[in-house]
Amino acid sequence: MWRYVGDHPGSAGGRSRDASACASVAIMTVDSPANCAGDGARAPDAESEQWVRALSGCGAERDRAVTALHEALLRVARAEFARRSGQLRISGPELDDLAYQATADAVIAILAKVGQFRGESRFTTWAYRFVILEVSAKIGRHFWRQPHVPLDTADWDRLPDRLGLDPARESEWRDLARALRRAVEGELTDHQRRIFIALMVDGVPLDALVARLGTSRNAIYKTMYDARGKLRASLVANGYLHESR
């Protein structure tokens, strides 16, 4: 779910922060790592080199490497599902089956892309990333197989809790919550409103929405990023929040 509790760089610099410090960084719209990590490539360490050589080869050595990779990724997948078990209402063989699926998908992706490994990290870290992302995608897809509140119920009473507004102080934030809802309904595009309501009102996890809409995490984040900016500007204009310094 969204991080709206805890440290946030916006509170230190926010919207007025000089973006030129990050001018060389592709913001939001560029998925390619080339812009950010072009200088990160270096000669792989010996162990990473050995992985790449074995997985790119053939015969028994490759088979052994694929088996070892599968074992390592399965350990990571199982540990990650266990770490995130609170997001799933399954356990035992069903959960282990998801771990096997995530592992199998990750191994296929890694074997297809092993030639693209550029030594920016250790090989195992690069490989584990594939299975971690598969676990997230599987948890997102699994959301829709659980009993849940259907999409588009738009129960706005749940929003204050998600935004950390204390029920005991409702008399203080009631107008703010109304202003926020007016801004959602009046300032956002249809698409932004749909995404905002799914994530923040209906409480759909971001990766579940990715699975439902057949889009990318980046696309939904970008939509919410723009929506957040619009909503904040509206609340500032109406005196509910202060302008960022």
Binding site: I27, M28, V30, N35, C36, A37, E120, T125, L133, R217
Partner: peptide, 24 residues
Amino acid sequence: DLDRFLQTDPCDAGCGTAMELLHV
């Protein structure tokens, strides 16, 4: 909490770049 949630950082790389660089 609400203020932090609505704040957007112009340096925010987005999910695409973050996921691509996660291992590094």
